[in-house]
């Protein structure tokens, strides 16, 4: 069974001149128990989508269901079954850790004790500070408290809107480890992120840009769909190298990618052709290797075909 079905959902804001099409009729499904990533930059429509699915915003067109319930008609029932962690910290700053958690348990007609097992691993890390006010917590602690509060009523579907934005690489890794262990407890998780490298940690992902879905697949599937030959190239003067690469007839696209430049080749061209070309242009021993695409390569390619 599908935990979430999104069927031609659209949403727009503003009028005439200032009209913004936040979601342009998108489709996808999330299976029960799946860890599903919505990957895309700011302004792609991720938050609008999450707010529609958590019944906080009405769509302008299309339909969607969560746990078999309609997001418009059955909004009350859905609210009991989903957990939502918005992108902006929205707990009560002047309540303590413990008071926030008890508050959320109470409004969902349950107790902290009843569902403690579910949050134990996460909450136990901040429990020693349970009398501290939420407003006084560090970013990482706030995040753990927000996640505990979103889970305390044992939701069947959990929505996490950009939980790792602005978070450093170490804390991001830890957060994803928490999500993996929640998934093992059978909760369906939808998580949005602008970080492309987090896609590989999901079961499946939807790549989203400007209100449109570019691809829905497993991370492996997205990468396998990248059909062009791809090479990574490095030399001493990277700026000059990029200019020279962009002039090569076999190049479809070339862009910086960390330590290397990634070069998407037209069909029929290989790493050898790139080496030869560079040697003809006075590069002595350019470092050229054929590589597998990264999710970010796929995203860039999909963005450019969409244009």
């Amino acid at each position: 069974m599908n935990a979430v079905i999104v069927n031609n959902i659209s949403k727009q804001y503003g009028k005439k001149k200032d009209l913004i099409q936040a979601l342009k009729g998108i489709f996808f499904e999330v299976k029960q128990g799946e860890l599903f990533g919505i990957i895309g930059p700011d302004g792609a429509g991720k938050t609008s989508l999450f707010r529609i699915l958590t019944t906080l915003l009405l769509p302008d067109g299309g339909s969607a269901s969560v746990d078999g319930l309609d997001v418009v008609k059955d909004f009350k029932a859905i609210r009991h079954r989903v957990g939502y962690m918005p992108g902006r910290f929205s707990l009560y700053q002047d309540l303590t850790i413990e008071e926030n958690l008890e508050f959320f348990a109470t409004i969902f007609n349950t107790t902290v004790k009843e569902n403690y097992d579910l949050i134990k691993d996460i909450y136990s890390q901040i429990e020693p500070f349970k009398n501290r006010r939420a407003g006084k917590l560090s970013g990482g602690m706030k995040q753990k408290l927000a996640l505990s509060c979103a889970l305390i009523h044992k939701p069947s579907v959990l929505f996490l809107d950009e939980p790792t934005t602005g978070v450093d690489a170490v804390s991001r890794k830890e957060f994803w480890e928490m999500l993996r262990s929640l998934k093992e407890q059978g909760i369906t998780i939808l998580v949005s992120t602008p970080y492309m490298d987090e896609a590989s940690l999901c079961d499946r992902v939807a790549l989203i840009q400007s209100g449109e879905i570019l691809s829905v697949d497993s991370p492996e599937g997205v990468i396998n769909a990248f059909k062009h030959p791809l090479v990574a190239v490095k030399d001493n003067n990277m700026l000059q190298l990029l200019n020279d690469l962009q002039r090569f007839e076999g190049v479809q696209d070339a862009y910086p990618f960390g330590e290397y430049h990634h070069v998407v080749l037209k069909d029929g061209f290989t790493a050898n052709a790139v080496s030869t070309y560079l040697q003809q242009h006075n590069y002595h021993q350019p470092d050229v290797q054929t590589i597998r695409a990264d999710i970010e390569d796929c995203f860039i390619a999909l963005m450019k075909t969409g244009e």
Partner: peptide, 13 residues
């Protein structure tokens, strides 16, 4: 200070 946070991969470049 984190000028490219949340920016798409093409614009980031």
């Amino acid at each position: 200070d984190e000028p490219t946070g949340g920016v798409d991969p093409v614009t980031r470049r």
